[in-house]
Amino acid sequence: MPEFKIAEDPPAHDGHDASLPPRNAIPPFAALRAFDAVARLGGVRKAAEMLSLDHAVVSRHLRAIEAWTGTTLIERTRTGVLLTEDGLRYHKRIAVAIDTIASATIDLMKRSDNNRLHTWAMPGFAFHWLMGRLSVFEASNPGLDIELRPTDMCPDFARHEADVDIRFANAYGPPLSLPPGVRSVEIARMPTVPLASPDYVARSPDIERPEDLLGHALLHEESYDGWSAWLSDHGVTNQEALSGPRLWHGHLTLDAARRGRGIALGNHLIAADDIAAGRLVEVGAGLFEHIPLGAYLFVARADRWNAPQIARFRHWLLAAVAAEVPTALATKCLVTAGHR
Protein backbone atom coordinates (compact mmCIF):
# COMPACT_ATOMS: atom_id res chain seq x y z
CA MET A 1 0.00 0.00 0.00
CA PRO A 2 1.15 3.49 -0.68
CA GLU A 3 2.24 5.46 2.37
CA PHE A 4 0.08 8.43 3.08
CA LYS A 5 1.53 11.54 4.75
CA ILE A 6 -0.43 14.22 6.54
CA ALA A 7 0.89 17.64 5.80
CA GLU A 8 1.49 19.81 8.81
CA ASP A 9 -0.50 23.04 9.00
CA PRO A 10 1.60 26.00 7.97
CA PRO A 11 2.56 28.27 10.85
CA ALA A 12 0.00 30.95 11.62
CA HIS A 13 0.92 34.43 10.57
CA ASP A 14 -0.05 37.22 12.92
CA GLY A 15 1.91 39.96 11.27
CA HIS A 16 5.15 39.13 13.08
CA ASP A 17 8.27 37.53 11.66
CA ALA A 18 8.57 33.98 12.98
CA SER A 19 12.33 34.31 13.36
CA LEU A 20 13.83 35.54 16.61
CA PRO A 21 15.46 38.96 16.83
CA PRO A 22 19.27 38.91 16.95
CA ARG A 23 20.57 38.13 20.43
CA ASN A 24 22.40 41.42 20.72
CA ALA A 25 19.18 43.36 19.89
CA ILE A 26 17.66 42.69 23.32
CA PRO A 27 19.65 43.81 26.39
CA PRO A 28 19.18 41.99 29.71
CA PHE A 29 15.69 42.75 30.97
CA ALA A 30 16.94 43.75 34.43
CA ALA A 31 19.00 46.51 32.81
CA LEU A 32 16.04 47.63 30.67
CA ARG A 33 13.78 47.74 33.70
CA ALA A 34 16.29 49.74 35.71
CA PHE A 35 16.72 52.24 32.86
CA ASP A 36 12.95 52.53 32.47
CA ALA A 37 12.48 53.17 36.21
CA VAL A 38 15.21 55.83 36.29
CA ALA A 39 13.72 57.54 33.23
CA ARG A 40 10.20 57.55 34.67
CA LEU A 41 11.11 58.56 38.21
CA GLY A 42 13.98 60.92 37.41
CA GLY A 43 16.56 59.49 39.77
CA VAL A 44 18.63 56.43 40.61
CA ARG A 45 17.69 56.33 44.30
CA LYS A 46 13.94 56.66 43.53
CA ALA A 47 14.24 53.86 40.98
CA ALA A 48 16.18 51.69 43.43
CA GLU A 49 13.51 52.18 46.09
CA MET A 50 10.73 51.33 43.63
CA LEU A 51 12.56 48.21 42.42
CA SER A 52 13.66 47.17 45.94
CA LEU A 53 17.31 47.23 44.85
CA ASP A 54 20.44 48.89 46.15
CA HIS A 55 21.14 52.11 44.25
CA ALA A 56 24.59 50.75 43.33
CA VAL A 57 22.90 47.82 41.56
CA VAL A 58 20.70 50.22 39.56
CA SER A 59 23.78 52.25 38.59
CA ARG A 60 25.48 49.04 37.45
CA HIS A 61 22.46 48.18 35.30
CA LEU A 62 22.60 51.63 33.70
CA ARG A 63 26.27 51.22 32.82
CA ALA A 64 25.52 47.77 31.44
CA ILE A 65 22.81 48.98 29.06
CA GLU A 66 24.99 51.86 27.89
CA ALA A 67 27.81 49.42 27.23
CA TRP A 68 25.40 47.07 25.44
CA THR A 69 24.10 49.81 23.14
CA GLY A 70 27.39 51.69 22.87
CA THR A 71 25.45 54.91 23.54
CA THR A 72 25.34 57.39 26.38
CA LEU A 73 21.76 57.35 27.56
CA ILE A 74 22.03 59.22 30.85
CA GLU A 75 23.96 62.27 31.99
CA ARG A 76 24.91 62.32 35.67
CA THR A 77 24.52 65.71 37.33
CA ARG A 78 25.02 66.99 40.87
CA THR A 79 21.26 66.97 41.42
CA GLY A 80 20.43 63.67 39.75
CA VAL A 81 20.31 62.29 36.24
CA LEU A 82 19.10 63.56 32.87
CA LEU A 83 18.33 61.56 29.76
CA THR A 84 20.31 62.41 26.67
CA GLU A 85 18.49 62.89 23.37
CA ASP A 86 19.32 59.28 22.50
CA GLY A 87 18.11 58.25 25.94
CA LEU A 88 14.80 60.07 25.52
CA ARG A 89 14.16 58.51 22.10
CA TYR A 90 15.13 55.04 23.31
CA HIS A 91 13.01 55.26 26.46
CA LYS A 92 9.96 56.46 24.55
CA ARG A 93 10.01 53.26 22.51
CA ILE A 94 10.91 50.71 25.18
CA ALA A 95 8.44 52.19 27.69
CA VAL A 96 5.59 51.21 25.36
CA ALA A 97 6.96 47.67 25.14
CA ILE A 98 7.36 47.37 28.92
CA ASP A 99 3.82 48.65 29.49
CA THR A 100 2.54 46.13 26.94
CA ILE A 101 4.35 43.28 28.69
CA ALA A 102 2.98 44.40 32.07
CA SER A 103 -0.57 44.73 30.74
CA ALA A 104 -0.47 41.34 29.00
CA THR A 105 0.87 39.69 32.16
CA ILE A 106 -1.76 41.27 34.41
CA ASP A 107 -4.47 40.28 31.92
CA LEU A 108 -3.29 36.69 32.11
CA MET A 109 -3.10 36.73 35.90
CA LYS A 110 -6.56 38.26 36.21
CA ARG A 111 -8.13 35.56 34.04
CA SER A 112 -7.15 32.92 36.57
CA ASP A 113 -7.82 35.03 39.68
CA ASN A 114 -11.48 34.80 40.63
CA ASN A 115 -10.98 35.42 44.35
CA ARG A 116 -10.53 39.19 44.33
CA LEU A 117 -12.93 42.02 43.53
CA HIS A 118 -11.59 45.58 43.47
CA THR A 119 -14.47 48.06 43.31
CA TRP A 120 -14.34 51.83 42.92
CA ALA A 121 -17.49 53.84 43.57
CA MET A 122 -18.84 57.35 43.92
CA PRO A 123 -18.31 58.36 47.59
CA GLY A 124 -22.00 59.08 48.19
CA PHE A 125 -23.10 55.71 46.85
CA ALA A 126 -20.28 53.91 48.68
CA PHE A 127 -20.90 55.54 52.08
CA HIS A 128 -24.67 55.85 52.11
CA TRP A 129 -25.78 52.69 50.34
CA LEU A 130 -23.14 50.13 49.46
CA MET A 131 -21.25 49.96 52.77
CA GLY A 132 -24.41 49.14 54.71
CA ARG A 133 -25.32 46.27 52.42
CA LEU A 134 -22.01 44.84 51.25
CA SER A 135 -21.95 42.31 54.09
CA VAL A 136 -24.92 40.54 52.45
CA PHE A 137 -22.89 39.98 49.30
CA GLU A 138 -19.83 38.97 51.34
CA ALA A 139 -21.86 36.40 53.27
CA SER A 140 -23.00 34.73 50.06
CA ASN A 141 -19.48 34.80 48.60
CA PRO A 142 -17.16 33.47 51.32
CA GLY A 143 -13.49 33.57 50.45
CA LEU A 144 -13.87 36.47 48.04
CA ASP A 145 -11.40 39.26 48.84
CA ILE A 146 -13.35 42.51 48.37
CA GLU A 147 -11.73 45.93 48.22
CA LEU A 148 -13.93 49.05 48.08
CA ARG A 149 -12.48 52.46 47.23
CA PRO A 150 -14.77 55.51 47.46
CA THR A 151 -13.50 58.05 44.93
CA ASP A 152 -14.60 60.67 42.43
CA MET A 153 -11.88 59.45 40.05
CA CYS A 154 -12.49 56.89 37.33
CA PRO A 155 -10.06 53.94 37.35
CA ASP A 156 -7.66 53.12 34.55
CA PHE A 157 -9.19 49.83 33.43
CA ALA A 158 -6.32 49.23 31.00
CA ARG A 159 -3.98 49.03 34.01
CA HIS A 160 -6.47 46.95 36.03
CA GLU A 161 -6.79 49.60 38.75
CA ALA A 162 -10.28 48.24 39.41
CA ASP A 163 -12.49 45.35 38.37
CA VAL A 164 -15.69 47.36 38.78
CA ASP A 165 -16.50 51.07 38.84
CA ILE A 166 -19.79 52.60 39.98
CA ARG A 167 -20.26 56.07 38.50
CA PHE A 168 -23.02 58.65 38.44
CA ALA A 169 -23.69 59.99 34.95
CA ASN A 170 -25.19 63.48 35.21
CA ALA A 171 -28.02 64.45 32.89
CA TYR A 172 -26.57 67.97 32.81
CA GLY A 173 -23.14 69.31 31.91
CA PRO A 174 -20.54 67.35 29.93
CA PRO A 175 -21.52 63.69 29.40
CA LEU A 176 -19.68 60.99 31.30
CA SER A 177 -16.89 59.75 29.07
CA LEU A 178 -16.24 56.02 29.38
CA PRO A 179 -12.89 54.69 28.13
CA PRO A 180 -12.69 52.26 25.21
CA GLY A 181 -12.91 48.56 25.98
CA VAL A 182 -15.46 48.86 28.80
CA ARG A 183 -19.11 47.93 29.12
CA SER A 184 -21.76 49.48 31.36
CA VAL A 185 -25.28 48.85 32.61
CA GLU A 186 -27.61 51.26 34.38
CA ILE A 187 -28.10 50.44 38.06
CA ALA A 188 -30.76 53.04 38.89
CA ARG A 189 -32.20 56.30 37.60
CA MET A 190 -33.72 57.90 40.69
CA PRO A 191 -35.52 61.25 40.89
CA THR A 192 -33.42 63.93 42.55
CA VAL A 193 -35.17 65.50 45.54
CA PRO A 194 -34.35 68.22 48.13
CA LEU A 195 -33.54 66.77 51.54
CA ALA A 196 -33.18 68.38 54.97
CA SER A 197 -33.38 67.52 58.65
CA PRO A 198 -36.81 67.69 60.35
CA ASP A 199 -35.36 70.36 62.65
CA TYR A 200 -34.36 72.57 59.72
CA VAL A 201 -37.79 72.21 58.12
CA ALA A 202 -39.54 73.03 61.41
CA ARG A 203 -37.62 76.29 61.98
CA SER A 204 -37.56 77.50 58.36
CA PRO A 205 -40.14 79.31 56.21
CA ASP A 206 -42.63 77.12 54.39
CA ILE A 207 -41.84 76.02 50.84
CA GLU A 208 -44.75 76.03 48.42
CA ARG A 209 -43.02 76.67 45.08
CA PRO A 210 -39.59 75.79 43.68
CA GLU A 211 -38.68 79.52 43.77
CA ASP A 212 -39.04 79.48 47.55
CA LEU A 213 -35.92 77.32 47.81
CA LEU A 214 -33.77 80.28 46.75
CA GLY A 215 -34.46 81.85 50.15
CA HIS A 216 -33.03 78.82 51.97
CA ALA A 217 -29.53 77.59 52.77
CA LEU A 218 -28.74 75.33 49.81
CA LEU A 219 -25.91 72.80 50.13
CA HIS A 220 -23.85 72.16 47.00
CA GLU A 221 -21.31 69.57 45.95
CA GLU A 222 -18.34 70.89 43.98
CA SER A 223 -20.32 73.56 42.13
CA TYR A 224 -23.76 75.14 41.83
CA ASP A 225 -24.50 73.06 38.73
CA GLY A 226 -26.64 70.43 40.46
CA TRP A 227 -29.01 72.87 42.11
CA SER A 228 -29.03 75.04 38.98
CA ALA A 229 -30.11 72.07 36.85
CA TRP A 230 -32.78 71.01 39.37
CA LEU A 231 -34.23 74.52 39.60
CA SER A 232 -34.18 74.94 35.81
CA ASP A 233 -36.04 71.65 35.39
CA HIS A 234 -38.68 73.03 37.77
CA GLY A 235 -39.09 76.28 35.86
CA VAL A 236 -36.89 78.55 37.99
CA THR A 237 -34.85 80.70 35.61
CA ASN A 238 -33.97 83.60 37.92
CA GLN A 239 -31.08 82.08 39.85
CA GLU A 240 -28.96 85.14 40.64
CA ALA A 241 -29.52 84.52 44.35
CA LEU A 242 -28.15 80.97 44.14
CA SER A 243 -25.54 80.60 46.87
CA GLY A 244 -24.41 78.37 49.70
CA PRO A 245 -21.39 76.29 50.74
CA ARG A 246 -19.70 73.93 48.26
CA LEU A 247 -18.71 70.74 50.04
CA TRP A 248 -17.31 68.76 47.08
CA HIS A 249 -18.89 65.39 47.91
CA GLY A 250 -22.47 64.17 48.01
CA HIS A 251 -21.92 62.39 51.32
CA LEU A 252 -20.73 65.67 52.86
CA THR A 253 -23.80 67.58 51.68
CA LEU A 254 -26.06 64.89 53.14
CA ASP A 255 -24.13 64.97 56.41
CA ALA A 256 -24.48 68.76 56.55
CA ALA A 257 -28.21 68.38 55.87
CA ARG A 258 -28.53 65.87 58.72
CA ARG A 259 -26.88 68.44 61.00
CA GLY A 260 -29.49 71.05 60.10
CA ARG A 261 -27.21 73.25 58.00
CA GLY A 262 -29.54 73.47 55.01
CA ILE A 263 -31.07 71.59 52.09
CA ALA A 264 -29.10 69.08 49.98
CA LEU A 265 -29.99 67.30 46.77
CA GLY A 266 -30.17 63.53 46.95
CA ASN A 267 -32.43 60.62 46.14
CA HIS A 268 -34.39 57.92 47.87
CA LEU A 269 -31.66 55.37 47.24
CA ILE A 270 -28.67 56.90 49.00
CA ALA A 271 -30.89 58.66 51.57
CA ALA A 272 -33.07 55.62 52.29
CA ASP A 273 -31.54 54.85 55.69
CA ASP A 274 -31.63 58.49 56.81
CA ILE A 275 -35.26 58.89 55.72
CA ALA A 276 -36.29 55.64 57.43
CA ALA A 277 -34.55 56.73 60.64
CA GLY A 278 -36.11 60.21 60.52
CA ARG A 279 -32.78 62.00 60.15
CA LEU A 280 -33.80 63.44 56.77
CA VAL A 281 -37.11 64.27 55.11
CA GLU A 282 -38.00 65.15 51.55
CA VAL A 283 -38.60 68.90 51.42
CA GLY A 284 -41.86 69.79 49.70
CA ALA A 285 -42.84 66.15 49.22
CA GLY A 286 -45.68 65.93 46.73
CA LEU A 287 -45.21 69.53 45.54
CA PHE A 288 -42.45 69.01 43.00
CA GLU A 289 -42.24 66.87 39.89
CA HIS A 290 -39.91 63.90 40.28
CA ILE A 291 -37.12 64.42 37.74
CA PRO A 292 -33.90 62.37 37.62
CA LEU A 293 -30.68 64.35 37.18
CA GLY A 294 -28.69 61.30 36.15
CA ALA A 295 -28.17 57.58 36.62
CA TYR A 296 -25.84 55.23 38.47
CA LEU A 297 -23.82 52.99 36.17
CA PHE A 298 -22.02 49.69 36.74
CA VAL A 299 -18.85 49.72 34.61
CA ALA A 300 -16.32 46.94 33.93
CA ARG A 301 -13.95 45.83 31.20
CA ALA A 302 -15.85 44.26 28.33
CA ASP A 303 -13.48 41.29 28.17
CA ARG A 304 -14.03 40.59 31.89
CA TRP A 305 -17.76 41.37 32.01
CA ASN A 306 -18.66 37.75 32.73
CA ALA A 307 -15.73 36.93 35.00
CA PRO A 308 -17.35 34.97 37.88
CA GLN A 309 -16.79 37.50 40.67
CA ILE A 310 -17.77 40.48 38.49
CA ALA A 311 -20.92 38.79 37.18
CA ARG A 312 -21.99 37.72 40.69
CA PHE A 313 -21.48 41.23 42.07
CA ARG A 314 -23.35 42.80 39.15
CA HIS A 315 -26.36 40.46 39.51
CA TRP A 316 -26.48 40.99 43.28
CA LEU A 317 -26.17 44.78 42.98
CA LEU A 318 -28.91 45.13 40.37
CA ALA A 319 -31.28 42.90 42.36
CA ALA A 320 -30.53 44.66 45.66
CA VAL A 321 -31.11 48.12 44.20
CA ALA A 322 -34.30 47.03 42.42
CA ALA A 323 -35.65 45.63 45.69
CA GLU A 324 -35.21 48.97 47.45
CA VAL A 325 -36.42 51.41 44.79
CA PRO A 326 -39.91 52.55 45.85
CA THR A 327 -42.35 51.48 43.14
CA ALA A 328 -44.21 54.80 43.12
CA LEU A 329 -41.00 56.78 42.73
CA ALA A 330 -39.70 54.47 40.02
CA THR A 331 -42.93 54.82 38.05
CA LYS A 332 -42.90 58.63 38.26
CA CYS A 333 -39.24 58.66 37.37
CA LEU A 334 -39.72 56.55 34.24
CA VAL A 335 -42.70 58.62 33.08
CA THR A 336 -40.75 61.86 33.60
CA ALA A 337 -37.64 60.53 31.93
CA GLY A 338 -39.66 59.70 28.84
CA HIS A 339 -40.45 63.40 28.36
CA ARG A 340 -36.89 64.70 28.77
Rank of each mutant, 00 (worst) to 15 (best):
M1E: 13
D9C: 02
P11E: 14
A12R: 12
G15V: 03
H16E: 14
D17K: 06
S19M: 13
A25V: 08
A25W: 14
A30T: 06
A34F: 00
F35M: 10
L41F: 15
A48H: 02
S59M: 08
H61I: 02
L62P: 06
I65N: 00
T69S: 13
T72S: 11
L73T: 09
R76F: 10
T77R: 15
T79E: 13
L82E: 08
L83D: 04
E85H: 08
I98D: 10
I98R: 05
D99C: 04
A102E: 14
A104M: 07
K110C: 05
R111Q: 11
N115Q: 14
R116I: 03
W120F: 15
P123L: 03
L130Y: 05
L130Q: 01
R133C: 05
R133E: 09
L134G: 02
L134R: 08
S135L: 09
S135E: 11
N141P: 00
D145V: 10
D145K: 13
E147L: 11
L148P: 11
F157C: 09
R159W: 12
A162I: 05
D165R: 03
F168D: 07
F168G: 01
F168V: 12
A169I: 00
A169M: 02
N170Y: 04
Y172V: 12
Y172C: 00
Y172A: 03
L176W: 03
S177N: 06
V182I: 02
V185N: 00
I187C: 04
A188F: 09
A188Q: 02
R189N: 06
V193K: 01
P194N: 02
V201D: 11
R203T: 15
S204G: 06
P210Q: 11
L214I: 09
L214C: 12
L218A: 08
H220L: 03
E221I: 11
E221S: 09
E222Y: 09
S223L: 02
D225F: 03
D233P: 00
H234L: 03
H234A: 04
L252N: 12
L252H: 12
T253I: 08
G262I: 05
L265Y: 05
G266K: 03
I270A: 03
G278D: 02
R279Q: 14
A285N: 06
E289K: 00
A295W: 02
A295G: 05
A302S: 13
D303A: 09
W305G: 04
F313Q: 06
P326K: 10
T327K: 14
A330F: 00
T331E: 04
T331A: 11
V335M: 14
T336Y: 01
